[in-house]
């Protein structure tokens, strides 16, 4: 029974969502399922928060290895939660926008959360450089083509590309690096992307059918047999 109920629910919801595309009267039902998911997702926030407190609370209580990191995590979680929930120092009071100018939430957001997030994202610049250094090597024909394409795109995305080939006459404008970069992105790259996307779309259809028909049940923690 424990195994059958989720499969039946999956089948009904999946079938209704497919049908609702083709039958306008069923559209509302499809929307309602989306709303149900939203409601569940909102309640799941509590589940995640509870788990965070339990795991890190345990770590601090038992003074496990790296418990100090857990203390930072919990402090951040509680302070930010309180600032948002009780709208501390919010000029518009409890009914105002959570991120109103002057509120504690906004102060924490712009002075801690914002720079920390940007810093993590900025790491990409460094990792792109180190990964390019390792990956773009002319080991064979295909890798060499990839290397040349990478060079053109890198140059084409900067004003330097414009200066470097600005002298090429308009009749050969495709040979100007920015135009060449656009051509690579919009022709060979686009063709490859579309092929991958067609494959992915078919993969999604096949996977979804396996789930709807109950052929695939590993995600429920049970064997398919």
């Amino acid at each position: 029974m424990k195994r059958q109920v989720p499969v039946i629910i999956t089948f009904i919801v999946g079938a209704v969502l497919i049908v609702s595309v083709f039958f306008p009267p069923a559209e509302r039902l499809g929307e309602n399922f989306s709303v149900f998911f939203d409601i569940i997702a909102v309640f799941a926030f509590f589940l995640g928060g509870g788990n965070l407190i339990r795991i890190h609370g345990n770590k601090i209580y038992r003074r496990q290895k790296d418990w100090a990191f857990s203390a930072v995590t919990l402090t951040g979680f509680i302070v930010m939660l309180a600032a948002g929930l009780f709208k501390i120092a919010n000029p518009n009071g409890i009914t105002g926008d959570v991120a109103a100018t002057g509120s504690l939430f906004q102060t924490l957001y712009y002075n801690i959360f914002y720079p920390l997030g940007s810093t993590m994202y900025a790491l990409l610049a460094f990792y792109v450089a180190s990964a390019s250094y390792r990956a773009f090597r002319a080991k064979n024909k295909e890798a060499t083509i990839l290397l040349i394409a990478a060079f053109i795109i890198l140059l084409g995305r900067t004003p330097l590309g414009v200066y470097a080939t600005g002298w090429v006459p308009e009749s050969f404008s495709l040979l100007q690096i920015p135009n060449l970069a656009i051509w690579i992105m919009s022709s060979p790259n686009l063709a490859g992307q579309r092929a991958i996307m067609i494959g992915i779309a078919l993969g999604v259809i096949s996977m979804s059918l396996r789930l709807i028909l109950g052929v695939e049940r590993t995600y429920l923690g049970v064997d398919n047999e």
Binding site: A129, S132, R134, L147, F151, L155, R157, T158
Partner: peptide, 19 residues
């Protein structure tokens, strides 16, 4: 961004030379 792209290109060249 322009400078970063140039440095990445320099490193790609260095990688290929040593390879």
């Amino acid at each position: 961004q322009t400078m970063a792209h140039l440095v990445i290109m320099a490193f790609i060249i260095f990688g290929n030379i040593s390879y």
